[in-house]
Amino acid sequence: MSGIYILIEHRQDEIRDISYELLAYGRKLAEDNNTKVTAVILGFNTEKIVEKIESQAHKIIVFDNEVFKEFNAETYQIALADLIRKDNPFLFLIGHSAFGMDLCPALATQLNLPFTTDCLAIEIADSNLRVVRHMFDGKLAAKVLLRENSSYMLTLRAGSFSAAESSLKAEIIKLDSPVSEVPDYRKFLEYIEAVAGDVDITKSDIVVGIGRGIKEQDNLAMIEEFAASIGGVVACSRPIVDADWLPKDRQVGSSGKVIKPKLYIAIGISGAFQHVAGMKGAETIVAINKDANAPIFHEADYGIVDDLFKVIPVLKEKIAEL
């Protein structure tokens, strides 16, 4: 087996979490299959990045060139195609992120590698490669067998694996870039940050939803504080918008926004189906409501049946203590 290659995703000098997850999983696969993990970094002035993962891979291949200053699928594709053709790694892993999704299928196709995307697990048995992935709105899992080949490319879903510490000392190989100029047909212009102050509840990983259970507008401040303390944003059900306590763009539900955060904490929301339609896609749902029969508890993973005014201040403390 000719190794497991992992494409490192970084942006503005930060390595994305997904890369650490892939490195950890890659090391495990390498161990199981008696091979090595190679991290591939494309960038410009990559020293800091290289440094950060030195302990996470057996080998690091670096293309350090101004053309890789920003991610550009087309430039990356040229360089990586060149590398893979030469090294022919058994597995080439990329995160299933905006970065990987913009790169993998085109790259694999160019190289005529069997590939697949959004994998949650990889099984290697004999000469066969199988992956597990989700389909149909995550309601079913599928086992997929890839066309037999000496080399494969996969994108892996973020959050499927945990990052882990490691104490390797990677061999660092700097290669000359096969591209010297960003191709004219795709040019990076800039990053645009979401306008500060504007809360987009669909973009946040943590959303605190409030309903009429908060009773008075003055209580909103307490919730805002709590949300801020856990890095979340405040959203709400219809009655809160009706009362003009929050703007319409904070409303979650069939007439409001549909959100899929990692964590949704429903506070004082009874869970009318119109609201549920907007938040049921959240990964983890916590409900805090004093009515044990509130339908929101049908949707929640965890529930606290208690007065929210008692729970929230304490919860804020407890989380802060962690």
């Binding site: 991610f71 040019k187 990076f188 800039e190 990053y191």
Partner: peptide
């Protein structure tokens, strides 16, 4: 919430 601006 980050956006990549391109010219293609």
């Amino acid at each position: 919430g980050l956006i990549e601006h391109l010219d293609v």
